[in-house]
Nucleic acid binder design. Sequence first.
DNA 1: CTAAACTTTCAGTAATTATTGAAAGTTTGA
DNA 2: TCAAACTTTCAATAATTACTGAAAGTTTAG
Lengths: 167, 167
Amino acid sequence: MEYKEARDKFISTWGVLGSHWGINKAMAQIHALLWVSPKPMSVEQIMEELKISRGNTSMNIRQLMDWGIVYKETKAGERKEYFASEKDVQELARQVAKERSRREIKPVLKVLKEVSNIDNDGTDETKELKKQTASLYELASTMDSMLDKLIDQEKNWFTKMLMKFVK
Amino acid sequence: MEYKEARDKFISTWGVLGSHWGINKAMAQIHALLWVSPKPMSVEQIMEELKISRGNTSMNIRQLMDWGIVYKETKAGERKEYFASEKDVQELARQVAKERSRREIKPVLKVLKEVSNIDNDGTDETKELKKQTASLYELASTMDSMLDKLIDQEKNWFTKMLMKFVK
DNA sequence: CTAAACTTTCAGTAATTATTGAAAGTTTGA
DNA sequence: TCAAACTTTCAATAATTACTGAAAGTTTAG
């Protein structure tokens, strides 16, 4: 497999994976492109490589920056802006974990807590609702604590932890 | 908060969460409904509660059964079919982990392996592609091994493991 | 201050994904 | 074997989401 073919396969696979996980294709593909690019890229270059419009490129780069996994770089004496991906896989994982926790898990935990704490009126329905949302709350908060730890600890904590158990 | 309000809040939140994770709203909501229902429900009842069509209900129930988290139940002497959710939260997590691994992670691992193993032609581009896809491969396979373990082990393995580290 | 070089926004449109509902299919009891 | 009771399928449509590209906005060099 040649370089170009391999790279495109990676980019396209990353796009598909993204869309299975609620991340839009363009955003995932821009990330993939920068992830394997040895140099920062301009908007022009990204548009060109992925055959997407300027607007689309710009909006998705912004999202990637909001997620904290793509950075703006400026070359000395050049007007144009260049973009580069966070290159450390651990840092990437930390950052994604952090954002997903903040945006999705935390709000769900809040609801699960509220719902599982409604007054027990003695009916079967209420009992089951409380029980089942409480057990989901426990699972989700356990997982979220793990993410919090991952976010706070030094970079290799996660891998180290897994290694012990995965053997 | 009253029962009905609380339940609807849970169902709607679960629907939103689902759509952030690539699961369609109806599927997530049917699951939520059955998750907190003390009794199995018929297609009629589900349609009625969620205000969705028969076809939609039927197709999404099928998907939930494919995922192994909803079961068909038949009441003795009744023609109609009833559906019930897997109620154990650990089992739910195992099942979801298993399916996501099989459907999404495994195929990506395959691509990452292929791409990271292309011939090194000595260019910077190729070097970077190999390096970055290899590091992603490592992360993803570590995580996937964890899922495999989770899937194989007895129900509480996952929680037990987390407990040790989360404190 | 101005104009060139660049970036961002957003209304309109395209593409994708979800949903409906009626028709086709299946099962069961008589 | 038939028809009632139920389930599944799928073409048409609706709803959602993503994308485009031109216009508006911003920055900087002269």
